[in-house]
Amino acid sequence: MSGSEGAPPHKTKSGFRLERWAPLILLGGAFAIYVGVVLATGQAQYLTFDNLIAILGRSIALGITAIGQTFVILVASIDLSVASLISATAVLASVIMDGSPAMILPAVLAAVALGGLVGLTNGLVVTGLGVNPLIATLGMSLIIQGCLSAFVSNFAGSVPAEFQVFAYGRLGPFPLALLFLLALACLAWILLRFTKFGSDIYAVGGNEEAARFAGIKTRRIVVLSHVICSVCAVIAGLYLASRLRSGAPWIGADGVYDLESIAVVVIGGTVLAGGRGGIWGTMAGMLIFSLIDSVFNVAGVDSFAKQVLRGIIIVAAVAFYAARSKRIVA
C-alpha cells in the first residue's frame, strides 16, 4: 500500500498542523451536532451521563478492532480478515467454554493462539510471498469464513455468566468493557509512542526501503503488526461472544468490522499509505461513528437515508484533511 511516492510528507515542524488536530475537530463537530440535534428535537433526556456512557459503549468491538487495524495501516499494510476472525474466535471461544467457567482460560488461550496464527500467516504471506496485503487478507478472510461455515451454521456453544462480565460488568458507573478499551488504547499508545518497536513501525510505514537501510528488520515489524491486529480482532471476538452470550459465524460480517475498522482508522487521521497517524485519532474515529449512530437514532433518520449520509460522511471526513495534501493518493 505504498502508492504515494509523490511529494515528500509535510515536514513542517512548527505551526498549526491541521492533520494533527483534524480528528479532534471532527469529533468536536460530531459532538456539537449531537447536542444540537438533541436540543432541537426537544429530547434533553438524551444528555444525561448514563446516555453519554451508553454512546461511548456503542462501538467497543469496532474500537478494539480498529486499534489493531491502526498498527497494520501504520506499516502500510491492511487487514481485511478481521471480520471473519472475529466470527471464528467468538464461535471457538463459546464452543470451548460451553457454559463452563473452568473452560474460560483455555478458551481465551485457544482464541488468542488462533489469532496469533492468522496474524503470523497474514504477515508472512505479505512479506515473504510479496502478496499485496489486500489480496492476502481477503483470501485469508475467505478461508477462515469457509472453514468456520463448514462446521457451524448458527450460534454454537455458550458463554458462562462469569465471562459475560466482560461485556455486561460495571465498575461504578462505567462499563468494564469501556475501561478495558481505554486500557488497551493506552497500551497501544505507549507501544507506539515510547518503544523502539513503535518508532520502527512509523519508520517502516513511512519508507520501507529507508527503514531497511537504517537496519530495521522491516519484515519482522510488518509480521508483528499483523499479529497485533489479529490479536485485537480476537479480543473483539471474545467481547462479542460475551455480549451475545454465544458465537455465531456471521457476527463479524454483520458488523462489517473489516471495512468499518479501516474507515475508523482513516477518519482518525492515519494515512492508508502508512507512516503517519496514531491511536487517539482512531479512538476519535470510533467515537465519531458512535455519535453519528446516536444522532441518527435521536433524530429518527430513516435507515436508508442513514446509509446515504454515512457514506458521504466517511468520504467528507477523510477529505477534511486529505484535501489540502498535494500527494497523489492510491
Binding site: T48, L240, D293
Partner: peptide, 21 residues
C-alpha cells in the same frame, strides 16, 4: 433500526432504556 446487526441492536436497546422515555 439495527440494520441486521446483533451488536447494534443491543446498543440500540440500551440507548432506548437510557434516554428514550
Amino acid at each position: 433500526d439495527a440494520e441486521g446487526s446483533d451488536d447494534k441492536q443491543i446498543a440500540d436497546i440500551n440507548d432506548l432504556l437510557a434516554g428514550g422515555d
